[in-house]
Design a protein around this nucleic acid. Structure first.
Lengths: 240, 240
DNA sequence: GAAGGCAAGTGGTCTATACAATATACCAAC
DNA sequence: GTTGGTATATTGTATAGACCACTTGCCTTC
């Protein structure tokens, strides 16, 4: 194991153990290099890595400090409903309202980069958390062999889990838009809320690791029961 | 400007100009160091930075390549209202409803990591796009010298712009939550919408590059006029 | 023709050193 | 007391060189 990697582990362990707390000053690069009998540049490489990971931050002329939080490490997570609700400590369940092959309309076709009229797998599900309706999800999927999804039990299995394990299609990234709105009569009935109650509309295009869109999904979340978290980062690239 | 920074700009420019495309092999570290008359370590630092930013990826024994996914390069943008609305092609304007130093309540103090009762700068603004009310924004700011914000004209200038240019506080990251709701009487009057219309509540904590929270802001967006875009990425790390 | 070895090129790690830019504490001068 | 300089700490930048690990292609050998 390379020395700078060993030093990284030592430094991380000092934070884990509570020896260093957020805001604390850590030993200088020269001091670390003497303590561990390595060159300053090697110690610096370990620290630089941890700065890039958000563990430390440097101040020229003052020293290197433990970051106050780990926000840069908490990347935005692309999860399906199942993982999402589980992470919130609730029990997710699903009712499949419909599952069939239908021709793609023009708007959906554009999102999935296919030609309108092509047959795609359309899935409408009611999503529940601890038995209470939370959202209606309307997914449209298009890929070679997607009709085999008709044979899957999607009430007991995560759609994303099936795509990855049985179809070899890991979903890696998504673009999503959110909009506040009011529940219509049909949505209200399914979600067991009053018509005109607040809801959160989401529209999401999900991609594999090859930038190929696989799914376009529209959802209606019950406004009172769902908070959406996100993490924003300043654009750095193309700084000119 | 440091040499490795100059080289970073040169390399970025070669991508922007189309000379290098995703998947292309770039010159080796030794070759770059000879071309630009710098040491290999300096060239390496420039490349390492760009690898960390997701522009390049390295393969030992083969070389360094331009990353394939442009999606990973389009990081989520942390923008203020002014930039956001301009990017949508509309004309942003602002009315300051109130601006004063007030003691922080317990909840806000926790978000800003200060002690409750400490004086913070509180700013309430009505945000308009093309003259129409779009959102009410209630910002709470805490940093050394924040009372100097009282003297700034915040109707004609972007708050984030002032923080960066006059206070040396570039805002780099933020955590945000979104929730759908219904407009109350007061909000409805300010936004010129009907009480009970759909609105989008956002709560945001904004950090500088040192992971120090500077701002906690609560906003109410008019639901019918605002769509929130985001980009989700699958969690990859924790490889240890 | 196939297999194996060799050489060259690449990124990966590490050292030792030098000077620049910045922050802080202390001290002398006014 | 405030100002301003200075000494000394820090990180930031940059160099030259060394060796390691891995990939590739060529070339020898069988």
């Amino acid at each position: 194991m390379p020395r700078y990697h060993q030093l990284k582990e030592i430094l991380r362990e000092r934070i884990r153990s509570g020896e260093w707390k957020p805001g604390d000053l850590i030993p200088s690069e020269r001091e670390l290099s003497e303590t561990y009998r390595i060159s300053r540049m090697t110690a610096r490489q370990a620290i630089t890595d941890l700065v890039n990971e958000g563990v430390f931050y440097r101040e020229q002329g003052r020293g290197t400090f433990v970051s106050r939080n780990k926000i840069t490490q908490q990347l935005i997570k692309l999860t399906g409903f199942t993982e999402d609700i589980s992470a919130r400590g609730q029990h997710p369940s699903t009712q499949v309202l419909s599952a069939e092959m239908l021709p793609a309309d023009e708007f959906t076709a554009e999102r999935l980069r296919i030609t309108p009229g092509e047959l795609i797998f359309c899935l409408q599900r009611l999503r529940l958390a601890d038995g209470e309706p939370l959202a209606i999800e309307f997914s449209h999927l298009s890929f070679k062999g997607c009709e085999r999804l008709l044979q899957e039990n999607l009430e007991q299995q995560s759609l994303y889990g099936v795509l990855e394990s049985k179809f070899g299609l890991p979903l890696m990234e998504a673009e999503q838009e959110l909009e506040a709105g009011l529940a219509g009569a049909e949505e209200a009935a399914l979600l067991k809320i009053a018509p005109g109650a607040s809801v959160l509309f989401t529209r999401r295009t999900t991609y594999t690791d090859r930038n190929q869109p696989i799914e376009y999904a529209k959802s209606v979340y019950c406004g009172a029961k769902y908070i959406f978290y996100t993490h924003l980062k300043r654009e750095q690239l193309f700084s000119s």
